[in-house]
Each structure stands twice: as C-alpha cells, then as structure tokens.
C-alpha cells in the first residue's frame, strides 16, 4: 500500500533488561534516595532472614547448644561466667538475641508474605467479579466488605484465630498456629484489595478494548483474566506493599498479645512480648533489638510502598 506512514519511531528492541533499566519506574527509583535506602534495608533484612541458618551465630532452637549460664549477657560484653561474647546480648535462657531476631524475622516475613498473598488472591478475585459482573454479585461482595470494615482488622483476626484454634485438635495447635495466623491476617485484609480492584475494573470495563473483546465473543471470565486483570495490577502492587508492612505488624501484635506464633517458634512479635518482661529489670536489649528490627522492616516497606504509589500514579509524574 502506498500510503505507509514515514514517521520515525525510536529504533527498536534493546534487551529486556536495558528496557527495564530505562523505564520511567526505574528512573524514578534511581532519583528517589528514600526509595533506594528503603529498598536496600528491605533487601538486607529479607536476605538475612532467608539465609538465617547460614549467618546466624547460633541456632536458638537447638537446646543442645544453649548454655543457661549465658543468660542475660549484655550486648557486646563478655559473659561474666563463660566469657562468651554476644553482639546483641542474650535472653534469660542464654539464647543469642541476634540469632533469635534472624530466625524470628523468617517467621514474621513468612506470615506477612503469605497473609498478603492470601488477601490479594481473595481480594482481586472478588473485586474483579464485583466490578465486572455488577448487580447482586457486586452488592453482596461489597456489603460483606463494608460490614467487615466496621470491625478493627485486628479484632477480626483475633476472632478468626480464636475460632480456628477452637476447632484444631490440641495436639496440632502449635504446628497449626502459623497457618492459622496467616489465615486470620489474610482474611482480615482482603477488603482493601477488593475495593481497589473493583474501582479499577469499573473504569477498565467501559473502555473500548473490553468492548472489542466482547464483540468477538470472549467469555466474561476470560475477559476479566486476560484483559482487565493486567490493567488493574498497578494499584494492587502498591496496596500489597503497604499491606505487607501492616501484615507484619498485625502478626507482631497478635503474637505480642499471645495469640500468635508460639514461643517455640518465636516471631518478632513473640520476641517483643518476651522482651517486654525484662524491660524494667534492666535487660533492655531483649526488647529493644527485636523492636528496632520490626520498626526498620515495617518502615522501609511502607516507604517503598509510598514511593511506588507516587511513581505509578500518572498524574503525579
């Protein structure tokens, strides 16, 4: 055909990596110091949690390696009896605080990630259904969401936790505690995913590419998954990040209240609960270091989420 447009487009196809590096998101990241520092903190914390067995100086769950004589060693000073050194000190049982933090973070992060994943899957599915199908489906889903929102999330989580604990056989309780925790936090957190996805779906479903897909006979569920879902993921990503921080804090809160991770598998929250008992007797480090770790983790994930929200918002760009 003779009327081919002669317009020049940028020369095409550098590698995928180069394109990603050059993308607006990567550029914004490189120009936001807060985002870079937060990302660095998160990466260091997550890596040290994942490789805890390799880098932790002690295995806090191996009773054989524990020496009760090492109890209450202050940070950075040799123990009065054994002359052993502990960077962040030890707790009443002589467990190395640094090692318990590293192992505790594993539990906290595992619960946090899993709970957010659960909330995300439930929320995105229900949000898509509500937004795309409308009618009574939407009314039902959104009213349930509204009702759930009238209770504080932590209360909902405690309720779910209580019920789940009641129906699990006592023998499995400690084993199941982590999974119950994930379920409780995940179920208390799906609402905001559902709301945001529903809103974005309402916008997307009116756009003509969805009409074009309907025209050629694509089925509703196929349209939701193949067409709408990829276009509503940006806000989901932002919420997932901020939810992760909240889920880690929720887990810590539940564990602090004694309804979360068992003392045999202590999370950061459990550690804080244990440490709290020694706050007034002078062994401050047992409380302070887990608390600081939780703070650093939650804060940097949150800051990262804030940056992501701004960077993905076309109006602020």
């Amino acid at each position: 055909m003779q009327d081919r447009p002669t317009e020049t487009l940028p020369p095409s196809e550098p590698s995928r990596l180069a394109r990603a590096w050059d993308s607006d998101l990567a550029w914004s990241f490189r120009h936001t110091p807060v985002a870079m520092v937060s990302a660095a903190v998160v990466v260091i914390l997550v890596l040290s949690a994942v490789f805890a067995p390799l880098i932790a100086p002690h295995d806090p769950f191996d009773p054989g390696s524990l020496n009760l004589m090492n109890g209450f060693t202050p940070p950075g000073r040799p123990n009065a009896f054994t002359q052993d050194m502990f960077l962040l000190g030890t707790d009443d049982q002589g467990r190395d605080v640094l090692s318990t933090i590293l192992y505790g973070m594993r539990i906290s992060l595992f619960v946090g990630f899993s709970a957010v994943l659960l909330a995300l899957v439930i929320g995105v599915i229900l949000g898509l259904l509500a937004g795309y199908l409308g009618g009574w489906v939407e009314a039902l889903i959104m009213r349930v969401a509204d009702i759930q929102l009238t209770f504080p999330a932590i209360l909902v989580a405690m309720l779910i936790f209580g019920v789940a604990k009641g129906i699990t056989p006592p023998a499995y309780r400690d084993q199941m505690a982590i999974w119950v925790l994930i379920l409780a936090i995940g179920l208390s957190d799906w609402v905001q995913f559902a709301r945001v996805v529903r809103g974005a779906t309402l916008v997307e479903k009116r756009r003509d590419y969805v009409q074009a897909a309907r025209l050629i006979g694509r089925k509703p569920f196929s349209i939701m998954l193949r067409h709408i879902l990829p276009n509503v993921l940006n806000p989901v990503l932002v919420i997932a990040t901020i939810s992760l921080a909240l889920a880690i804090i929720a887990e810590a809160t539940l564990s602090f209240l004694g309804v979360g991770a068992p003392p045999t598998k202590p999370s950061l929250g459990t550690l804080i609960r244990i440490g709290q008992g020694f706050m007034f007797s002078g062994e401050w480090w047992i409380l302070l270091f887990p608390a600081l770790t939780l703070l650093a983790l939650a804060l940097s994930i949150n800051l990262l989420g804030d940056w992501l929200r701004d960077a993905l918002n076309p109006r602020l760009r």
Partner: peptide, 21 residues
C-alpha cells in the same frame, strides 16, 4: 493526505520540522 504524523518533540528532525512529510 499528508504522509506520516507530527514528529514527537523529543525526535524533531533537523532543519524544517515538516520536511519528512
């Protein structure tokens, strides 16, 4: 018809901006 379309501001041609069309 005028072939092509208006050049993008980050890819203006040398000389007269209309010459490619």
């Amino acid at each position: 018809q005028i072939p092509g379309s208006m050049p993008r501001l980050d890819a203006l041609p040398e000389g007269c901006p209309f010459h490619p069309r």
